[in-house]
Amino acid sequence: MPPVPLVHVPILAVTITDATVFAVSAAVIVAGAIGVIAARNPVHSALMLVMTLFGIAVLFVEQSADFLAVVQVIVYAGAIVVLFLFVIMLLGVDRLDVMRRDPLPGQRPLALVIGAAGLSLLLFLAGVHWVTGARSVAGPAGGPGSNVEKLARSLFTTYLLPFEVTSVLLVIAVVGAVVLSRRPSKEAEPEPPETAIEPEPEPEQPEAETAPAAVEEEPAPTGIPGGGS
């Protein structure tokens, strides 16, 4: 395959299907994104986020990044957003947000101004003809062979050290999440004022506590299947 010209692919060379796929996906993505920040219910936000994620997965496929598309679905949709929903349900924080009043004066207009400025700058930069000069550091993305194989070869040769470090990061995250979500142990809790009568150990209490704890500690490890895939 000859080197892909950087930018100037005439739009006529693009098939109608590709253009259609992009247009539909872009619409889905933008609609989903706006939905995320506009929905008053966090669960709706999460669903909108899933919508955006699927749109992006489609664009990944469109750009021949099949593996990433699937991983995107597995990790983001299958694990991260599920985790969000799980926490929302577990904590019961799915009530509606008050959107009208903002306690921080000036936050909203400033945010909009900066957002607009940033967007215009980004759009300007996206249209600029970039030449970095560096290409094919980790191997070609196109050409014969499956996308998975090429990605795997890159990950396990050029990026082997980052790959291993990332696995360490994951382990740390899991341990950290378990520690964070663990209920404080009995000793740490404030003791009731001691009476003159000798304190009787209550055998029922630990059992009563462990049952809900087992349920609540689950959100921490659920990060593994998605992250590890």
Partner: peptide
């Protein structure tokens, strides 16, 4: 895709 370099996709993997 533009630079024909698989490194970008590897980076996405790490971001995920």
């Amino acid at each position: 895709r533009m630079l024909n370099d698989i490194g970008g996709q590897s980076l996405v993997f790490f971001v995920l």
